[in-house]
């Protein structure tokens, strides 16, 4: 079953002669528990695609469906709620709040959703322990290594039990060793916890962890490589 689906997704910036088409009628589907890497040269539209998938930006035309909901039909508040409940974001620069400790950072999405802070922190602690950060719960981001910070960010992305994780160059700021760890963790998230993971990366080594690689070029689907067998129905167009 597809958790994410785009239909003729197009995004253009500017108008007239200076208009730039970042995405050009892109249609794809991503299945539950599938890990997909999006690759391509810079300016190929991979970041734009991720923004559109996350409802952070609005498409010029076309549709994005997440878990049966059409994002293009949602207003800002509904989008916000969708992000909170169905999506998890992982950023290149981790983007942890510097003044909150690991547990508090990881608990943010559920506390924002109104969960009692004790319960929220218990959930966050659970995820952090799974990711081997059980002894770093009260550390501030500045007291954690890059890899640890990104693991906190992944815990944060998962704490609200979203169906889809969107990661933007999640290893872009890490060394090779930490990158491998994070990529393996993301794969574990997809396989063990059955979340779909969409990850933009330019690192072949990280992309190789995925089930499928989507190559973009000039806003269009240039190529697609299936690396591992995947659940039925996850076919790209």
């Amino acid at each position: 079953m597809a958790i994410l689906k785009t239909n003729q997704l197009t995004k253009t910036y500017g108008a007239g002669d200076t208009a730039v088409t970042a995405l050009d009628h892109l249609s794809l589907e991503i299945a539950v528990g599938e890990m997909v890497a999006i690759m391509g040269p810079s300016g190929c539209g991979k970041s734009t695609l991720l923004h559109l998938l996350g409802g952070l930006d609005t498409p010029t035309s076309g549709e994005v469906w997440i878990d049966g909901q059409n994002l293009t039909r949602l207003n800002d508040n509904q989008l916000t709620e969708l992000r909170r409940r169905k999506l998890g974001f992982i950023f290149q620069f981790f983007n942890l709040i510097p003044v909150l400790n690991a547990v508090e950072n990881a608990a943010l999405p559920v506390t924002l959703d109104g969960m009692a802070s004790q319960q929220a922190q218990a959930k966050a602690t659970e995820w952090l322990q799974r990711f081997g950060l059980g002894n770093r719960l009260k550390n501030l981001p500045s007291q954690l290594s890059g890899g640890q910070q990104q693991r906190v960010a992944i815990a944060r992305a998962l704490v609200a039990e979203p169906a889809l994780i969107l990661a933007d160059e999640p290893t872009g700021n890490l060394d090779t060793h930490a990158s491998d760890e994070i990529a393996a963790l993301l794969r574990q998230v997809a396989k063990e916890y059955r979340r779909s993971v969409v990850m933009v990366t330019h690192d072949p080594r990280i992309a190789a962890y995925a089930d499928r690689i989507i190559f973009l070029k000039d806003g269009k689907l240039a190529d697609e490589t299936v690396l591992a067998s995947q659940p039925a129905g996850a076919v790209a167009h």
């Binding site: 072949p204 080594r205 190789a208 962890y209 690689i213 190529d223 299936v226 690396l227």
Partner: peptide
């Protein structure tokens, strides 16, 4: 090129999995 790349990526995927 595409076929070769897909082959290499599959190889890389397998190697990574094996290594893991």
């Amino acid at each position: 090129l595409q076929v070769q790349r897909a082959t290499l990526y599959r190889e890389l995927h397998a190697l990574t999995a094996l290594r893991g």
